[in-house]
Design a protein around this nucleic acid. Structure first.
Lengths: 217, 217
DNA sequence: CCTACCGATCGGTAGG
DNA sequence: CCTACCGATCGGTAGG
């Protein structure tokens, strides 16, 4: 990464973080040196320490803020309705949109937990577990209401959580589908995984074109 | 990682690779030094070079062999039947079992592609793309036969591919489900994602206990 | 299989 | 914001 246009006064704590998350995501935390970050900002490595305390502090800040945003968005999605199927739909859309709108932050959070030292490592893991538990609770409630049908809600929750990563790998800005459309399709997959299908379509069991929109709930 | 029992004569090329894949998976390639690998084998770093050419050669060997095994297993799974739904089921089981039986090899393949130099990097990416294309071809065929119902086969294939990673994150040896049982449940998820559902169950639309086995095809 | 050692690079500090 | 520099660690080699 190279930032072309920067005058010295414009380098801020947030600017350093932005460059850092990009390089951490592209090359990995260990493979990114403070000199790399400085170079991308057009300065020398020691100058970075006017903005950040340490390399690890940069990583910690990136991971906490991304995780807290994901959790807040998830809780907002679940609170938006009382229908458990709609809650799962909104939760999955929120999940996928984290991947699509903040791919670098999510990549760092997924790959660099092992680069953290305690106590941050445990705290980030706790937040990640809380995120997953939100999905598991939804699925268990849907099952107990007789609306969802899965053998193991826990297993289904992990399937849905990891499925979101596929969206990131696949997504290309300006491609066939927008972020919101991809999120919608993945939320349809999530509902299918827990056994919620379009009843009418299931009964008639008619072929539907792969390129059509007949799969929408 | 520490290997407790090793006499010098027992250290082989394969022994070095086995230790390396474990440490690469646990800590990452960059965070693992040749001294770490040597220590786990009870020797000094320079002695490793009697068994391997370089650190990167170790990584390359690990990634090629894991990728080739996954591809061979996938093709065997697809060749085992002519029914496209059964092909997808077997392919997904094969995918999940890679994660469950070779979690370290899969982790290294997923995380360390960026640690490779050319031309190996491009070759591994080509193999990974071939693997994904196998799933996409299956789904496209199922759709054109009117058996599968998805808006975008490509998007569905990525959802299924990434879903497999959830199995690895979740799976604990000796837990509630065996590897084969987890693979079976994930293959059921894959069929649901592409719109293949148990017709009778869908019609009656009856609640089914989450802990039951009513979701089996 | 070992010790001794190479040049390169790392995160970070001193001092201005 | 910079230059100069620190001790630590890296992959790998020499030589036995």
């Amino acid at each position: 990464m190279r930032v072309e246009n920067h005058s010295r006064a414009h380098v801020t704590r947030e600017g350093v973080r932005k460059v850092a998350v990009t390089l951490f995501a592209e090359r990995g935390y260990r493979a990114t040196s403070m000199r790399d970050i400085a170079e991308a900002l057009g300065m020398r490595a020691p100058s970075l320490y006017n903005h950040v305390r340490s390399k690890e502090a940069l990583l910690v800040e990136i991971m906490y803020s991304a995780m807290d945003r994901a959790l807040a968005d998830l809780h907002a999605a679940i609170s938006s309705t009382d229908d458990v199927a709609e809650q799962l739909r909104h939760a999955t859309e929120s999940l996928v949109l984290q991947f699509l709108f903040y791919p670098r932050e999510v990549a760092v959070n997924n790959n660099e937990i092992r680069s953290l030292n305690e106590p941050h490592r445990s705290k980030i893991i706790a937040k990640r577990d809380e995120y997953g538990q939100g999905f598991r609770d939804l699925i268990e409630r849907g099952c107990s209401l007789g609306l969802f049908h899965v053998e193991s809600p826990r297993l289904a929750s992990y399937a849905i959580l990891e499925m979101g990563n596929g969206a990131k790998v696949w997504f290309r800005k300006g491609g066939l589908y927008s972020e919101v459309e991809v999120a919608r399709q993945y939320s349809e997959f999530a509902l299918r995984i827990v056994g919620v299908t379009d009843f009418a379509k299931c009964v008639q069991h008619a072929p539907i074109e792969a390129t059509g929109d007949g799969t929408r709930g």
